[in-house]
């Protein structure tokens, strides 16, 4: 039901944003889920926009040398059932809409052995460790649904 923004004019896009949220009765919350392999094998950063992630991780004390995006998916979360995300290590991560309180979506993320409770917001990202893969670590990166793919 999304109207292509590239084709619509600015006003039409605004209108679409306004009307789509007004018309939605069954709450659906979009979130961007990227799976990234952080490792110390090589220094590849792919796509290059992941340099930001590398910097952030380094600032938090996680000094991986290589960051590679393995998948990127825009999830449409509902309360009914969790959205599943197949990880390359054979495991499955889930993201589920728990509730919307005062317009803020509360989301539960299951990845690896960890369950994370999240409040969605229009800015920022949350990185969740999602288990080992090859010689590195899988990281689930959750971004606002409006975010562009990195």
């Amino acid at each position: 039901m999304r109207i292509s923004r590239s084709r619509a004019t600015g006003w039409a896009a605004l209108f679409a944003v306004v009307s789509s949220s007004a018309l939605a009765d069954e709450p659906k919350v979009e979130v961007l889920a990227d799976v990234i392999l952080a490792s110390n094998e090589g220094t590849a950063v792919d796509p290059p926009s992941l340099v930001a992630m590398k910097t952030e991780f380094a600032s938090a004390g996680l000094a991986f040398s290589s960051y590679q995006r393995l998948s990127s998916e825009r999830l449409s979360l509902t309360k009914q059932k969790p959205s599943e995300l197949k990880l390359p290590n054979g495991k499955v991560a889930t993201v589920k809409l728990e509730d919307i309180k005062n317009g803020t979506a509360q989301v539960k993320v299951n990845a690896g052995n960890t369950e994370v409770g999240l409040k969605l917001g229009r800015e920022g990202q949350v990185f969740v460790q999602a288990g080992a893969f090859r010689s590195g670590q899988l990281v689930l990166m959750l971004s606002p649904g409006s975010a562009r793919k990195p």
Binding site: S21, A24, E30, I100, T104, G121, Q125, P144
Partner: peptide, 24 residues
């Protein structure tokens, strides 16, 4: 301003926040 009034569904909050973390 517009988005503040009508943000995308579920995005009334400004930032992504971690509220709780539990482990098996």
């Amino acid at each position: 301003l517009i988005l503040r009034e009508r943000p995308p569904v579920g995005y009334a909050g400004e930032r992504m926040l971690v509220q709780s973390v539990t482990v098996d």
